[in-house]
């Protein structure tokens, strides 16, 4: 499992269909045809909020996730990244830096 670049901008992949369920959500990757379970509602909210924040760390802060809950959510996000559910947002072209 890869470790996540939490100082980068992330988003829910556009290839993903997300279906709310009593336990959280079901994610389906239309290209790889993989089905992934998001096992808590907090995780679903977090995944949906990624695109609104400049970095993953900011999204975690905004959700009030710290300590052990932060660690467990980071682990869950890492496996979602491996499954292609979330992905790095394409970087906004920056001014050339010296």
């Amino acid at each position: 499992m890869s470790s996540l670049a939490s100082d980068q901008a992330w988003t829910l992949s556009s290839s993903i269909g997300l279906r709310p369920e009593p336990f959280g959500a079901l994610a389906y990757h239309f290209e790889s045809r993989r089905l992934v379970f998001l096992k808590t509602k907090d995780l679903v909210d977090l995944v949906r909020s990624l695109a609104d924040h400049p970095t993953l760390d900011d999204a975690l802060d905004a959700a009030g996730l710290d300590g052990r809950r932060r660690t467990s959510h980071l682990t869950a996000l890492a496996s979602l990244a491996d499954a292609g559910v979330i992905e790095l947002r394409s970087p906004i072209p920056a001014e050339a830096t010296p």
Binding site: R19, E21, P22, F23, L26, L35, F37, K39
Partner: peptide
């Protein structure tokens, strides 16, 4: 626990 939840059924089939 996930399987237990699934056994109680979902709003639509998987």
């Amino acid at each position: 626990p996930l399987t237990e939840q699934l056994k109680r059924g979902l709003d639509a089939p998987i």
